[in-house]
Nucleic acid binder design. Sequence first.
DNA 1: CGGACTATTGAGACTCCTCAACTAACGTGG
DNA 2: CCACGTTAGTTGAGGAGTCTCAATAGTCCG
Lengths: 232, 232
Amino acid sequence: MHRVPAPLPVSSRKAGRQIDPLVLTQAQREALMRIGMRQRLPPRTVVYREGDEARWVFVIVEGAVKSYRELRSGRRLVACFLFERDLFGLAENGRYVNTVETLVRTTVYRLPVEDLAALLKHDGAMQFVFLSKVTYELREAQRRSTLIARRDAAGRLAMFISRMGERLGRNSTGIVPLPMSRTDIAAFTALSLESVSRAAAALQRRNLVVFDDRHRARIVDPAGFARLTGAV
Amino acid sequence: MHRVPAPLPVSSRKAGRQIDPLVLTQAQREALMRIGMRQRLPPRTVVYREGDEARWVFVIVEGAVKSYRELRSGRRLVACFLFERDLFGLAENGRYVNTVETLVRTTVYRLPVEDLAALLKHDGAMQFVFLSKVTYELREAQRRSTLIARRDAAGRLAMFISRMGERLGRNSTGIVPLPMSRTDIAAFTALSLESVSRAAAALQRRNLVVFDDRHRARIVDPAGFARLTGAV
DNA sequence: CGGACTATTGAGACTCCTCAACTAACGTGG
DNA sequence: CCACGTTAGTTGAGGAGTCTCAATAGTCCG
């Protein structure tokens, strides 16, 4: 799923055991389990709100969430979607910066900030995993910027679908799951809901993508699709 | 300058000595100096190119650089501007993802990836500083997305100037240094050069900002300016 | 001082946004 | 299980804003 975005790639060579710095070893997993707890959340559950005191850090075991901010204008901007193995809940000045809400039933590890900080200080390898995860998020954020930098709505949506395909493991059938709503996609791509809708219609009209249902896109012309996606 | 964006804010309380997790202690500085070297670079120097093998990580001691990517269309997108104390050169799959070029004369620390990785593994506190820096970059990237999400060019430019003011220490005179060119601002804000130029003219016409010269903006109506900046 | 690059300003085309009406999907309670 | 109400999404028309192209002015460096 994640493709080794190691901030310091060499370590994976040296460590030997740890091939993908985003995946925890069994021992590390157990160490985390000692300080944290597993939590199961129904869909549309707010995990925390922007401005709340940041007492926990979360790692997704299974499921999907969105991280968003409410702007003064009332407009909502989705900063990112997060899936299995992603990390969230990093604080700024001791407070959460975004609101996080589950899209579907989601299982997370909830780690108390204080205990985690202590653990990371003593376990360099473990902290390295966290560093890798944050670096990964940084790349994602950059990708989002290049996506938004595009002018054409169809191109933005295509890039979005393409990215989801890579993250959620596009199986050979070309089916990309889209667990979020059209409104969420609009809030992520910085388009209006109407434009997302029209863009989806346009992709379908051009025979690039078929939307089997609202949460499933099927890429029927990978070549043409890639051409559009890459035409940045 | 940087406002304590601790990923795990508690540690700064516990550590006692280390108030700002983005600033290194003297001992840490010395440890880095042992493995790295100081390097002085003239303006417009390419530090590394996208795709190069990532052999070093850099920390800016003084100066300013831009980090950008060339898109297939030939269009150039500036991912971020980096200043004193900022970190850059994190790899993805062992290669740099952006091209980095100095804007002005710049002094950097050049740290070999392998030695740094080894050092971080053994020094949790040091790694924590790096984790904080990457978290800080992540926030910056998010801010850029919200900036680009705006439709109006004047608002985008105002937000950009505001951000530079915060990062580069807007002195009480309201003067904001802009070490980059208009073209670079355009490539960062995802506007055309012409739109940046027109936006600057508009801000000046509305008596919000005066451009003393191309690299110096003076905010003459902080209230009105803040109103525009906040009207997201 | 000259030449190349960078920036400003104007006019027209293009694209998305807003507003509005309508349709589809969902889930809640009887 | 169905009916209803609410929310989410689609489609159309007109307006706002930026982009492109073009010409001109300014700036920086050798």
